[in-house]
């Protein structure tokens, strides 16, 4: 694992650390998030991991600015973003269902934001994103004609074109099947590396989180259960919930693979 490397080398260019301090949020008197604090550096991939209803998507929306916090603060670089409205934060998201516009073809979806932010990306840069995500053969297709993986890549391109300071992904892999899943996973990793883009991912799948990210924030019922690197979490779960929810699941998976392929593959 090479996390941390990018933090040192590029933090000056893209705005630096994202820090959340004591974030709390209630909906209708029910506490959804309670006293969340963490920080991540530029170019890092962080996963928000937890079972459904744990508050991870709410946390993602708070960072995005779609929902306001009740208390606590969100700092990016030197700027306090807590009360800054969504469109001025400069972050962007790919929703779980991609929210592509069906009246436009793939290409027009990708360049949608350019009409509002003229000059944010040159024609050549747009082409680079398209090449990078291997979308050239699909540009003239209607959204309904694209496969799940292609939709995901179009949505990524549409978001990247606006050059967000932080990329947020809500369950980016849950709607995809096996092989595509691995390929999108690699794609997300190389985006973070290539563009030195801080990326925050919501997921409920421990394997996905542990193999994709530099840091993982495990949330249970609105509280932080554990925050650390994949190695730290595996070696020191430190917590009954993490033990049950994460480690146990992975052990079962390992056992399944062991049963199928024998010990050699399980450790490969």
């Amino acid at each position: 694992m090479t996390y941390g490397f990018y933090t040192e080398s590029v933090s000056k260019e893209v705005g630096g650390l994202l820090k959340l301090h004591n974030i709390s949020k209630q909906f209708d008197g029910k506490t959804v998030l309670n006293d969340i604090s963490f920080e991540i550096g530029t170019g890092e991939i962080m996963s928000l991991l937890g079972p459904s209803g744990s508050g991870k998507t709410t946390l993602l929306h708070l960072i995005l600015g779609l929902t306001g916090v009740d208390s606590g603060s969100i700092i990016f670089g030197n700027e306090d973003l807590t009360r800054v409205p969504m469109r001025k934060r400069g972050f962007n998201i790919v929703f779980q269902d991609y929210a592509l516009f069906p009246n436009l073809n793939a290409y027009d979806n990708i360049i949608y934001g350019l009409r509002n932010k003229k000059g944010v990306a040159s024609k050549q840069e747009v082409q680079e994103y398209i090449d990078f995500l291997e979308l050239t053969p699909h540009l003239n297709k209607r959204i309904g004609e694209l496969s799940g993986g292609q939709k995901q890549r179009v949505a990524l391109a549409r978001t990247l074109v606006t050059k967000p300071k932080i990329l947020l992904l809500d369950e980016p892999l849950s709607a995809l099947d096996g092989v595509i899943k691995e390929s999108i996973k690699q794609r997300i990793q190389s985006i973070a590396r290539e563009f030195k883009l801080t990326t925050i991912i919501v997921t409920h799948d421990p394997e996905e989180a542990l193999t994709l990210s530099d840091k993982i924030l495990i949330i249970d019922q609105g509280k932080i259960a554990r925050f650390g690197t994949p190695q730290e979490i595996i070696s020191q779960p430190d917590n009954d919930f993490v033990e049950r929810f994460i480690i146990k699941q992975l052990q079962i998976k390992r056992q399944n693979i062991y049963n199928l392929f024998g010990e050699m593959y399980a450790h490969a």
């Binding site: 929703f95 516009f101 949608y112 932010k117 549409r158 606006t162």
Partner: peptide, 25 residues
């Protein structure tokens, strides 16, 4: 339901998203 948020993140005003996305659909 996420079209308006997406439009806003891509720089649209609410009316602009309605005109460019919701209405055509």
């Amino acid at each position: 339901p996420s079209w308006e948020t997406t439009g806003e993140l891509l720089g649209d005003s609410w009316f602009k998203t309605v005109y460019r996305v919701v209405l055509p659909n």
